[in-house]
Design a protein around this nucleic acid. Structure first.
Length: 891
RNA sequence: GGGCCCGUAGCUCAGUUGGUUAGAGCGCUACCUUGACACGGUAGAGGUCGCAGAUUCGAGUUCUGCCGGGCCCACCA
């Protein structure tokens, strides 16, 4: 019969996703989905849906997975979740690890050897490369540069680059870029992290030529750059320096004569109003230098060492040079002031090295035309952010966007499809390597050694993965995507760029219609979890400890839109308890099935099943009730997930299963098992309800529900997995107000009795006796449920349709008065409670009366609000009367 | 400097268009090892919703200011 020796305690690690493995292999899903599978679950796509998950933090995928499962179970087919090219990330992570183990800097290998090794390792590790990546995930620094081996993607990247170039949107220029001396590459603005640093502002005297004794004082945070000064700037309107117009100063240490220029760069209100101008090492100065046609003197090189241009300081590290420059200035009495100064130091996002602004030749994307279209897409609502306020952040960035430096001096990445002529220096951009120089015909061509910013290729993901530039059926079907779920931390890096690239290359069509921004997972100290910080909760560890489903549930409960997700062990533990609760509810079911000789059973049609009755009998009230509640839970869950309110869905499911199904339904069912044998209506209803509840829970807790669902397998043909079954939808005909009311009455009476018992400090095993008084119709309901009341409250009650006496041990609702026979000593314990209730009621009555005597309120408030207060007041007054009676009785 | 978000029970957080006595989980108290579950059950205690105004018949919810905390963007020496 049942195979099961069901252990008492739910064992998290019991559930391995083995059952779904086959499906992935035959699905049309992109293979990259596997990458997150071992951590949370296998994502089972609808057959007509494609998609993929990006590699963010694994823990942030629960929302994505819930959404996918929910869509799948509802048979919807337009969901598509783009991801980055994982193969590249995985490869890069593994390769860099392996090289590090061998003590090799990848740059020392030579590009050919490097590529050879990558291919070799890739072949060796096969598909386990992704698994390796996940295991590394917790501690591995996730470099965003990577070596991409995907030929299709490479083709799309080249195509886009060439097309942008042809439109004049890609250009190569000498420009100031953020240079990381450690990574030895240019960085885009976004890759520079500004870190608040305590620094100094040094005030230095520059003597003015031809005016003995006249100095200008410049203030700088980087004195070593003065070696490359080619001017000092003053503001034309600054009266203090009017006499210096047209003069020159003598640059100390270098003994170079440099002009005093008039430029807006100098703000008379800041510092001394005099600015040193170092066009080769400062963005502002670079532009000022262009305006005034100043020479560029590079004094710091790409290794952050001083160049020959720095004269006597050549060869020194930039910080050593700073110390020497300051010392030398001090010696000459030119350092007039040193003050503390807080500055935001630009550092490399990846290696934290202070970046060095350097002038170099780089490739840029002229971004404004692309950005304008992407702005329009959000303004017109073709792309919608959820929560909506993220669109403000998006606009903020898009309106202030600057040209995008896309070349990187790294080896992993897509190589820029540009060739340089060794003869005449001509630069050619082409899809394939040209055989000869287009200008001079020489055959000595070399490909540009730079690679593209990783986000350049990532930005093409929505269409490059679907076969673009070919017009494939996939592309037609799955572009655009309905939904992108992602974290705000890559809103600019990736989301905005996907939007820009998608619109540009897909005839103006956006890549996705909705962008759901989930919260970032934070640890108990509210630190953002990220691989670069190394404070990640290792999903493999916590899923081992609490179970995958419990971790998911814990995440979902914290996943309110617009907030961070705080993941604590406490919450995971309590979710584990919830999983155990379900597990044991199932255990109860299975053990009793065995006892009653009931076979596994599910109805033929899950969508039309309604609680059944035995011939000649009524449908059991608890069955009517649980289906009504199930229906309400289905309505809540569907609505919540649809609106990305995952925490609401989680709470609704939790409440339904624990506090309705387990606390009341199962308890009521226990009363029936004695009389039951065989698969009667009571059993059928219960099994159907449980089966439906499992499906309802499935997106949130896939493994546990799958396991139990498989054990419920009956005769009816069913899908191979619960993930392929239908998600329960609200069905109006299941809502049963009468059953809801009847069980609610039952709950009220049972709770009253239990409360009285607990407050009177009575032994739970002692059977109580008492009388339930009511003059309303609800007494009949209570009489009908007398047996359940007796069992659940362990009390034998009489039911009287009369007013309650002035009894001491009494609990009241508007409808009922329950009077228990208690020993005198315990009756006194009731006084406190009654007095408290009386005070609360008095407050409520006062409030209601005040409102009802307010003509303005009566005139302006909607009638139903006034009515509800009237009936409320009547109820309060009735209860107060009873309590005062009871208090009189105890006196 | 610009922008965004947060401040609700001891802790971590919900609270969708303003409308009953503001909720959950954990923790806490008392009792119960009852036959699914002690990762359990029953019953409780605990909050002037950061502060001050404004709008409204009515504000945790809308507006303004302030205080406190966080994040993002930014070339001011």
């Amino acid at each position: 019969l049942f195979p099961m020796q069901i252990e008492k305690v739910y064992e998290p690690r019991r559930f391995e996703p083995h059952w779904a493995q086959w499906w992935i292999d035959s699905g049309v899903f992109h293979a990259s989905v596997e990458s997150s599978a071992p951590v949370f679950s296998l994502v089972i796509p609808p057959p007509n849906v494609t998609g993929s998950l990006h590699i963010g933090h694994m823990l942030e995928h629960s929302e994505i997975d819930v959404t996918i499962r929910w869509h799948r179970m509802r048979g919807e087919n337009t969901l598509w979740l783009p991801g980055t090219d994982h193969a590249g990330i995985a490869t890069q992570m593994v390769v860099s690890r392996k090289l590090a183990e061998e003590g090799i800097n990848y740059r020392d290998l030579g590009r050919e050897e490097f590529e050879k090794r990558v291919w070799q390792w890739k072949a060796e590790s096969g598909d386990t490369i992704k698994r390796q990546m996940i295991r590394l995930g917790a501690s591995c620094d996730w470099s965003r540069e990577r070596f991409t081996l995907d030929a299709g993607l490479s083709r799309a990247v080249r195509e886009v680059f060439v097309r942008l170039y042809e439109k004049g949107l890609v250009y190569r220029g000498e420009y100031m870029v953020n240079w990381c001396p450690q990574c030895k590459t240019a960085l885009s603005d976004l890759e520079v992290a500004h870190v608040a640093t305590a620094g100094h502002l040094w005030h230095i005297q520059y003597p003015v030529n031809g005016m003995p004794g006249r100095y200008v004082v410049v203030a700088t945070t980087r004195p070593e750059t003065m070696l490359g000064d080619t001017a000092v700037a003053i503001n034309a309107k600054d009266a203090r320096y009017a006499d210096l117009h047209g003069r020159t100063v003598q640059l100390p240490l270098m003994d170079r004569e440099i002009p005093i220029i008039l430029d807006e760069l100098a703000d008379p209100a800041f510092g001394t109003g005099v600015v040193k101008v170092t066009p080769a090492h400062d963005m502002n100065d670079f532009e000022a230098g262009r305006r005034h046609k100043l020479p560029l003197i590079q004094v710091i090189d790409e290794n952050a060492a001083m160049t020959p241009g720095a004269g006597p300081y050549a060869g020194l590290d930039r910080f050593e040079a700073r110390r020497r420059v300051l010392a030398d200035l001090e010696d000459r009495g030119l350092l007039v002031k040193t003050e503390d100064y807080a500055l935001n130091l630009g550092t490399c996002q990846r290696c934290k090295t202070p970046v060095e602004p350097l002038v170099s030749k780089q490739w840029f994307v002229k971004i404004k035309p692309l950005a304008d279209k992407a702005i329009d897409a959000v303004e017109t609502g073709r792309i919608k952010f959820i929560p909506a306020n993220w669109s403000k952040t998006y606009f903020e960035w898009m309106y202030n966007i600057r040209d995008w430096c896309i070349s990187r001096q790294l080896w992993w990445g897509h190589r820029i499809p540009a060739w340089h002529c060794g003869n005449c220096g001509e630069v050619m951009v082409a899809r394939e390597a040209p055989s000869a120089c287009a200008k001079c015909g020489a055959a000595r061509l070399t490909q540009d050694t730079d690679v593209l910013d990783t986000w350049f290729s990532s930005g093409l993901w929505p269409f490059s993965t679907l076969g673009w530039p070919d017009r494939t059926p996939d592309l037609a079907k799955f572009y655009p995507t309905s939904l992108l779920i992602t974290g705000f931390d890559i809103l600019f890096f990736w989301v905005a760029r996907m939007a820009m690239m998608g619109i540009e290359f897909m005839d103006g069509e956006v890549p996705f219609r909705e962008v759901y921004i989930h919260g970032l997972v934070r640890d108990a100290e509210r630190q953002k979890m990220s691989k670069t910080r190394g404070n990640t909760i290792d999903p493999l560890v916590v899923t081992e400890k609490y179970g995958t489903d419990a971790v998911r549930m814990a995440l979902l409960q914290g996943a309110a839109p617009g907030t961070d997700i705080v993941l604590t062990e406490e919450r995971m533990a309590s979710s584990r308890d919830f999983a155990n609760k379900i597990w044991n509810a199932a255990r109860f079911l299975f053990l009793n099935m065995e006892r009653s000789g009931v076979d596994p059973w599910v109805p033929d049609s899950l969508e039309t099943f309604r609680p059944e009755a035995e011939p000649g009998q009524e449908v059991p009230i608890e069955d009517r009730w649980i289906f009504s509640r199930l229906n309400a839970a289905a309505a809540q869950a569907n609505r919540a997930i649809e609106q990305y309110r995952y925490h609401e869905a989680a709470q609704a499911l939790w409440h339904f299963f624990w506090h309705e199904f387990c606390d009341w339904y199962v308890e009521l069912k226990k009363l029936r098992f004695r009389e039951n044998s065989g698969l009667d209506a009571g059993w059928r209803n219960m099994l159907a309800a449980f089966e439906t509840a499992l499906r309802l829970l499935h997106p949130a807790m896939p493994f546990l529900t799958e396991e139990l669902w498989q054990r419920l397998k009956g005769q009816a043909p069913r899908p191979a997995s619960i993930a392929l079954a239908a998600y329960p939808q609200p069905r109006g005909e299941l809502a049963d107000a009468a059953a809801d009311a009847e069980i609610e009455t039952l709950q009220e009476i049972v709770t009253m009795a239990r409360t009285l018992r607990a407050e009177s400090k009575l032994d739970p095993k002692q059977r109580l006796s008492g009388v339930l008084y009511s003059r309303g119709p609800a007494l009949d309901v209570a009489r009908r449920r007398a047996e359940a009341i007796e069992k659940l409250a362990n009390a034998g009650l009489q039911y009287k349709a009369e007013a309650a006496p002035q009894a001491p041990a009494m609990r009241s609702t508007a409808e009922f008065d329950l009077v228990l026979e208690l020993p005198q000593a315990q009756q006194d314990a009731q006084r406190k409670r009654l007095e408290k209730d009386r005070d609360q009621l008095a407050r409520n009555i006062a409030n209601s009366k005040r409102q009802l005597s307010d003509d303005v309120f009566l005139g302006k408030a909607p009638p139903q609000v006034v009515d509800s207060i009237r009936s409320k007041l009547a109820g309060y007054e009735e209860q107060l009367r009873k309590i005062e009676g009871a208090l009189a009785g105890t006196a």
